[in-house]
Design a protein around this nucleic acid. Structure first.
Lengths: 351, 351
DNA sequence: TTGTAGGCGTTATCAG
DNA sequence: CTGATAACGCCTACAA
């Protein structure tokens, strides 16, 4: 850790002078200030928040009490918090804007506010991971990067879920499948790996079984989600089963299909993979889903990180957590002799 | 603030001995330990996390980086974080289980991890507020308690929204209204004020206008939400307009009504007040909603708290933020001569 | 304009 | 088993 004293030494001034420029609390000659700033920069100095807090008796932190109601889909956060507590640690949620995460994450560690970091929404090539590595800061991922060498992560096994879903649908006689994934290009999540991996797996699995597999990328945008039904009907009218890996698209999709008199699951079966919201139950018909055990993800990630902090050595924790299928009423046998979706409207009698 | 030294003095031991029992780091005679524990208890001592962190070079905190994507309805958290940052503060989210919030909240302050607290999901009589007051800890509420004397709060003006909704619907000729609110009895949110206040306002507003107003209390539970449509049809078949103040019930309600061939808004108009999720757009038809400006709530609450921390005196910040109506397609003129809802199924031709 | 030194509340080492 | 005492890194009078 770089201290003020080290900065002072390098700049040939006393520690108080450094304090003055760091805090802008007293005037300092431009030249000395310059030297100090140079030293700070060269050494990568960050003021230690803990020491500052102790000296000033103010932490400069305000806390938003964040009640863990089941409602917030935070079984995940809850389990992480519980795991931390069990180890004598506290979990804090550090809100960051997507654009400056990489910067914040290192300052969080260097300033001493936290000992380690848990990362969410990990991208294939994640800048935050790079920064943490070079800062030598302990971290664990929920999700994973392309290169997982030596790093702790706990991830959902999207490959397993996707393969399982394809097998399951194929077993029911479906031969024309579609996959709906979220389009992240142009958003802060570009490069987000789960959709990418799911797509890959889907293409392989369908190819292996000799099935027809179409992929639809849909941005997170109500209009696009509503348009999806149209797109699907127009571009892949032979489809009999859809795998959706997109939190919100399922709503628009079901509504759009209903409007077109497509019967679910009579004409078309739908499976949703790892939906973040538990609203599937409220859709009519209830969705068949592959659910990720949020608690296990959060808990194991926190444990891995803390084990690290406690000085445990050995191989990194690298876990894939399987999703489990929960049967709703949105999947059925493949229809026989069903006309193409785009002609269905005039043929079908009842949705 | 109570320090170890004070505990030591009261127990007639040295500060190190206190440290030993607090941290269980060395054996101590049962008698002295007893004296120390007594002193700790009597003085309300809490180990200062900052000093401890400085001495041990470990904060015992792990951070979960919490990306603020628009998706998570955290315009609210985002604004609070931004407001804090603008004032040289950091916002942290402190996850707590609903059952021990009151205990956590004071230890959070006493341990020096945070300077002040923002409270969500405030109840009419909130234990946390009582604790914070007696601990003399700075706080601000998002929401409000029954007694708001001298405390900073920013709340949604549910009264305004409810009154406005009743007026709006009455203006369209509706005379048989229903209000759907969340049932919190038996949950951690029992006594939660918004539904209570909305109910009160609804009863007054309908009475003032000579309208018929029915109230339905629905737990947050998919089954109950689906049953709501049935309940409504059976118990208040003359209803022509519903005001929903229940995040999820609207889904079940719309689906349930559709199944019963109730046309929206032909037979029945629906308005949703301050839905936490923006999924209203995905319902068919799009819901007319009263939306609370989350950013304003979070931002102003954080500002009020920090102003306090910075020593500003004067009257407390007490703000009611108005909701704004966003027209969807779920509201129409009151139907004339529509049969009771419970007989509608056989009469209506199309949903 | 810059430096010195005491203190913030704990922990940890080393004596008793 | 218990007690002094020197850190931890920074802030802030007070002095120079």
């Amino acid at each position: 850790m770089v201290t003020m004293q080290q900065v002072a030494d390098r700049a040939n001034v006393s520690i108080s002078t450094v304090s003055f420029v760091v805090n802008n609390t007293k005037p300092v000659t431009p030249q000395t200030r310059e030297r100090i700033l140079e030293a700070i920069d060269a050494l990568g100095y960050r003021r230690n928040a803990t020491a500052r807090a102790l000296a000033t008796r103010r932490s400069h932190v305000i806390a938003l009490l964040y009640p863990l109601m089941e409602r917030n889909l935070n079984s995940f956060v809850e389990a992480a918090a519980a795991a931390a507590e069990a180890q004598g640690y506290h979990l804090m949620l550090w809100p960051v804007r997507p654009d400056n995460q990489a910067a914040e994450v290192t300052s969080l560690i260097k300033s001493g506010i936290a000992d380690g970091v848990l990362l969410l929404e990990v991208q294939l090539d994640d800048e935050r991971v790079a920064k943490l590595r070079e800062a030598n800061a302990p971290f664990a991922l929920i999700g994973r990067t392309r290169d997982t060498d030596g790093i702790d992560f706990v991830d959902i096994d999207f490959e397993q879920a996707t393969t399982d879903a394809v097998d399951y649908l194929a077993g029911l006689g479906h031969r024309q499948l579609a996959l709906v994934i979220e389009e992240f290009d142009g958003t802060a999540l570009a490069g987000y790996s789960p959709p990418t991996r799911a797509e890959q797996t889907f293409r392989n699995a369908t190819a292996d079984l000799g099935l027809d597999g179409r992929v639809f990328r849909v941005p997170r945008d109500p209009l696009a989600e509503l348009a999806l039904a149209h797109q699907l009907v127009e571009q892949a009218p032979q489809t009999t089963a859809i795998i959706v890996m997109h939190d919100e698209a399922s709503f628009g999709l079901v509504n759009g299909l209903r409007r077109r008199a497509v019967a679910i699951p009579g004409d078309l079966s739908i499976v949703s993979i790892a939906p973040a919201t538990a609203l599937g139950l409220l859709i009519d018909p209830g969705l068949t889903t592959y659910d990720a055990p949020g608690g296990e993800l959060g808990g194991r990630a926190a444990e891995a990180l803390i084990a690290h902090l406690k000085g445990r050595d050995g191989p990194p924790t690298q876990v894939l957590v399987a999703c489990q299928r929960h049967d709703g009423a949105s999947v059925g046998l493949a229809p026989t002799g069903r006309p193409p979706l785009d002609t269905l409207q005039s043929v079908s009698t009842k949705g």
